[in-house]
Design a protein around this nucleic acid. Structure first.
Length: 423
RNA sequence: GGAGGAUUAGCCUAAUGGUAAGGCAGCGGUCUUGAAAACCGCCGGGCGCAAGCCCAUGCAGGUUCGAGCCCUGUGUCCUCCGCCA
């Protein structure tokens, strides 16, 4: 959520951001409602002051055992006027809140301009493309032959897009989760959290999934709970309605969770294998940062995610998303993409974003600066570190051998009882 | 699922229907070689240059001149019963 005052003072900046993100929020409508609302507030505050003073007089008269009935009668009409004005204001408040909740974040100045994902800028590339002396297969062919993924049975028990991992595939997935968590907790200084996978609507609102992306989450109406699309949602909400001391910052968490996504509207896209599924495993990194240092924190967050890819020896590149491709809540975002030699394409495996105050305003997460100054909103950041599904694709395709076996990357072997290959 | 109880600021705790008191923690200062103690100030939010005004006792309504307090609905937590890995 943006600051209404900021919108009032910078309507053109906000309108430009809305246009870029192909959003339809009506800022003129918002500002006209805001103006009406503020006029009513000015009026009603005078009346409330009148009423408060009169009530105090009544109290005084009663204490002195004097008659107050005349003043009470006079004040009755003031109360009625206040009620009428409050009633007028309620629909304004509601519509303002609704509009505010749907206005996207404004891109940071360092974000490249563009019109679509085509205009994202490659800011870094790492690793050599592996050369093959045979024709590399794609992950689905490899996994099917090794019997480590089972899509048909996943479809039988849940539906399409719910893969079953088996044998070495299940173990490899678990190895990745543990490797990610160990890397971030031991080397990178994140505190591990294991969050609930179902969250209430207030929580889903806090990180920005509600109201706009309601249809992308699985919802359990009996209990009014949502299945989390990412651990970002519960972990960022850990500190909702809390205030940090400045010396606490940055606060860094990593969390494993299963992630559930309806992927409504994407049918027909990436239908093959493990590329786009309704349930997958992910280790998420979340930071709460001093607003003056959040862009440095974004760089280290990105470096922490990149470190995993380097350790796994996967060729990757980093994109700085252009303003048109930025998500609803993000002010700036880097995507990490690995090269999949079987698919012969780049696969997004991580998004590292700075949300600035956009989420912390929704969640009321503050900190008190050094010297006891007034509380300020913190900046929140998060990034995948990483998702296992597409990493599995990258590993199978990159480390495949001519006979269809897979060499296990060295860093994962301790997590797989020292095995060196899957066959 | 049923029955009770609780809910006030970071924490703890007050307030015959009369306009949120106090303590702890924290921050700033005085004092000190340094620290502690002691003392002074600040310590929910918004608007305002300021004086000040408005809002705030889980949330939403209602009654009232006036609601932390009374009424209705609801959220959350705790305890007990039932069921259960």
């Amino acid at each position: 959520m943006l600051d209404l005052k900021f919108i009032r003072e910078n309507p053109d900046i906000v309108k430009a951001a809305i246009a870029k993100k192909k959003d339809f929020s009506d800022i003129d409508r918002l500002l006209s409602l805001d103006e009406k609302r503020r006029a009513i507030i000015a009026e009603v505050e005078v009346l409330k002051n009148e009423r408060n003073m009169a009530s105090e007089q009544v109290a005084k008269l009663k204490r002195e055992k004097q008659d107050a009935s005349e003043l009470i009668e006079k004040t009755r009409t003031t109360g009625e006027k206040i009620k009428a004005l409050d009633d007028n204001m309620r629909p304004l408040d509601e519509e303002i809140n609704e509009l505010m909740a749907k206005i996207p974040n404004v891109p940071h100045a360092s974000v490249p301009h563009g019109n679509s994902a085509e205009d994202n800028v490659v800011v870094a590339e790492w690793g050599e493309e592996r050369s093959f002396d045979f024709t590399p297969k794609d992950h689905l062919q490899l996994a099917t032959a090794l019997d480590i993924f089972d899509f048909p049975r996943g479809a039988k028990i849940s539906g399409s897009g719910f893969p079953v991992l088996k044998g070495n595939g299940a173990q490899l997935d678990r190895a990745l989760i543990n490797f990610f968590l160990d890397s971030h907790t031991v080397k990178n200084g994140y505190r591990e959290v294991f969050p609930p996978f179902l969250v209430n609507s207030t929580t889903a609102f806090g990180t920005g999934q509600l109201p706009k992306s309601k249809d992308q989450m699985y919802y359990m109406p009996e209990d009014d709970l949502y299945a989390i699309p990412t651990a970002e949602v519960p972990v960022t909400n850990l500190h909702r309605d809390e205030t940090f001391a400045a010396s606490d910052l940055p606060v860094k968490y990593c969390a494993y969770s299963a992630c559930f996504r309806r992927e409504a509207g994407t049918y027909g896209k990436d239908t093959k294998g493990f590329l786009r599924v309704h349930q997958f495993n992910k280790v998420e990194l979340v930071k709460f940062a001093d607003p003056d240092k959040s862009y440095e924190e974004l760089e280290t967050l990105r470096a922490d995610a990149e470190g995993i890819l380097k350790a796994l020896g996967l060729k990757y590149r980093v994109l700085s998303l252009c303003d048109a491709d930025l998500s609803f809540s993000a002010a700036k975002c880097y995507d990490l993409e690995i090269w999949a030699p079987g698919e012969k394409r780049w696969l997004e495996v991580s998004s590292c974003s700075n949300f600035e105050e956009f989420q912390s305003r929704r969640m009321n997460i503050r900190y008190r600066p050094e010297g006891g100054a007034k509380q300020r909103l913190v900046h929140t950041l998060n990034g995948s570190g990483l998702a296992t599904a597409r990493i599995l694709v990258g590993i199978l395709e990159t480390y495949q051998n001519a006979d269809g076996s897979i060499t296990i990357p060295e860093v994962l072997r301790p997590y797989m009882q020292g095995k060196t290959e899957i066959r």
